[in-house]
């Protein structure tokens, strides 16, 4: 340190200079692309490993089959229209059951959320019956509705109903009081309370209920098609079980996964259309 610098330092204390020169950093790899490749690679790798292990005999083919064997079973089922037929039957039951459960679920949920007396009188029954596993009611449903379509649709409906009802009610109860005050202040009728505040305000929760309900619907369709069905993807699973046709069973399972994916995708789109005011929060 020179004498000048030393005297300067004594006078002003230490002087710290931070200077930067250079270019903004550029990413060498596109991060989003890498993540996409990873998301594609890992399941593919699993399939390849499954195939290799089944060929090596590490995995028992009789129990777990192999991807190529499953694929070979699937193609003719697709061509013959057999798979499509069963998928259609199940999809129809799911849609009808879902609607039959969701519509009353929303209406009752809104009413219970808006009006305390309705809530007070219906809540005990809802709380008492909600925990009963829906599968346990199935024999009763079969006795009441018979072996036809009605029993299958009702089984799904009852599962969807509770989840939609409870979510809708919670959605209405979550609406800030101030919005109800605004509606009251401008003289909204009870019906307008539903249409302008309760229903739109609860929509995000209603859709949460729909998604949960759809999960339950897929679960129940397999159970419903176990008893007294002649078609459907669930029936296909049980049929394959009876025949010990592991490949066919896997094909049915894949179809169920596909059905679930499609339905949740449709709900996702519907949500974006119906709740535009929530879109960019996600």
């Amino acid at each position: 340190m020179s004498l000048v610098e030393e005297t300067l330092q004594k006078q002003f204390g230490e002087i710290i200079v931070k200077e930067a020169k250079g270019e903004p950093k550029k990413a060498v790899f596109d991060k989003a692309l890498i993540l996409k490749v990873l998301a594609f690679l890992s399941p593919s790798l699993l399939l390849v490993l499954w195939e290799i292990f089944s060929r090596l005999g590490v995995v028992d083919i009789r129990l777990f089959s192999s991807p190529i064997m499953i694929f070979k079973t699937m193609v003719p089922m697709l061509y013959s229209g057999e798979l499509l037929y069963h998928t259609f039957i199940s999809a129809q039951r799911i849609v009808l059951g879902f609607l039959a459960g969701a519509v009353p679920g929303v209406i009752l949920g809104l009413s219970m959320g808006l009006f305390a007396p309705i809530r007070a009188s219906l809540m005990p029954m809802v709380s008492a019956t909600f925990p009963i596993p829906k599968l346990a009611i199935m024999p009763l449903i079969l006795i009441v509705f018979g072996l036809g379509e009605a029993s299958k649709i009702f089984t799904i409906a009852i599962g969807v109903f509770y989840l939609v009802l409870i979510n809708t009610m919670a959605g209405v109860l979550n609406i800030d009081d101030i919005y109800l005050d605004v509606a009251k202040n401008f003289g909204a009728s009870p019906f307008q309370f539903y249409t302008t505040v309760a229903f739109p305000g609860a929509l995000p929760m209603i859709f949460a209920g729909f998604k949960l309900g759809m999960g339950t619907a897929l679960l129940l369709i397999v159970a419903a098609e176990l008893s007294a069905a002649k078609a459907g993807v669930g029936w296909l699973v049980w049929r394959a079980y009876d025949m010990f046709d592991i490949e066919k069973m896997f094909v049915a399972l894949i179809t169920l996964a596909f059905l679930g994916y499609i339905f949740s995708y449709l709900l996702e789109i519907a949500e974006k259309v119906v709740i535009p005011w929530k879109n960019d929060r996600r």
């Binding site: 101030i178 919005y179 005050d181 605004v182 302008t196 505040v197 739109p200 709740i275």
Partner: peptide
């Protein structure tokens, strides 16, 4: 008869 402007957040987010 009356209209009120409320204190705080009272604009309907869904409209």
């Amino acid at each position: 008869l009356t209209s009120m402007v409320f204190q705080g957040e009272s604009v309907f987010p869904w409209m």
